[in-house]
Amino acid sequence: MIRVRDLKHDYEGKGSYAVDGVSFDIEDGAIFGFLGPSGAGKSTVQGLMTGLLGLQKGSIDYDGLSIARLGRSFFENVGVSFEHPNLYAKLSGLENLRYFAGLFSGPTEDPMALLEQVGLRDAAKRRAGAYSKGMKQRLVFARALINKPKILFLDEPTSGLDPSTAELIKGLILQKKAEGCTIFLTTHNMRDADRLSDTVAFLNAGKIVAMGSPRELKLQYGAKSVKLERRVNGSVKEETLFPERPEDAARIKAYLDEGCIETLHSQEATLEEIFIRLTGRTLA
């Protein structure tokens, strides 16, 4: 279990916190979606959680052990996928993975099998510098999996990918979760977060403004509504009604009794709408 408490980080030491009082827990085997716009402090939190940034205030514990006491062996069980592809351009995809595999003491994945999984088998021997952005992103993702990590930090793993490749990556993320991997997913893609995360936290200006499962958040912050289409004098009319309001509940019942309803859908607030409602900002 990962426990983060009252995390604060000030880059310039002038009392201006990029991360201010962030606390959360991540259960083993869960996917924790960390959502927020650019500059919200997501990367700072990830940097602190991976020990790449020095801890200033607060605590980060992995299974009860403070990150301050974990040496570099901590990374034996951790995989990190970066938002901006960072690869040796003059090494092939296969060479990049082989080199990285050599840094770990435990068993590692077969580099070629990983390349196959992310759809890069045919490009395995091509230099990474010649890859497209999407291919580089997939290679970085594959590199994060090379050491069979127990904890994965994924920063915008589907950014720049075409829909079918993004689906492939999301499938692999869910597969790792099924294998018991704990995943910290940083993204501003609300749909990905909604689909993949067990818990999401909204980060704005260095503070968590809401946290819970996507369903909980939608129930808490979204209004319950239904969208229906009914036939009126030969034409289709669309309406949004709120069943918790007595007058709207009565209308829905009346329409059902009349048998004029053609389509009926429950309406949930999206995570993006909730974020905008809470912060007044978009995620872009």
Partner: peptide, 12 residues
């Protein structure tokens, strides 16, 4: 290239 960032997140 940013590869030093990847190296930071390794046990080496």
């Amino acid at each position: 290239e940013g590869t030093i960032r990847a190296y930071r997140a390794s046990p080496a």
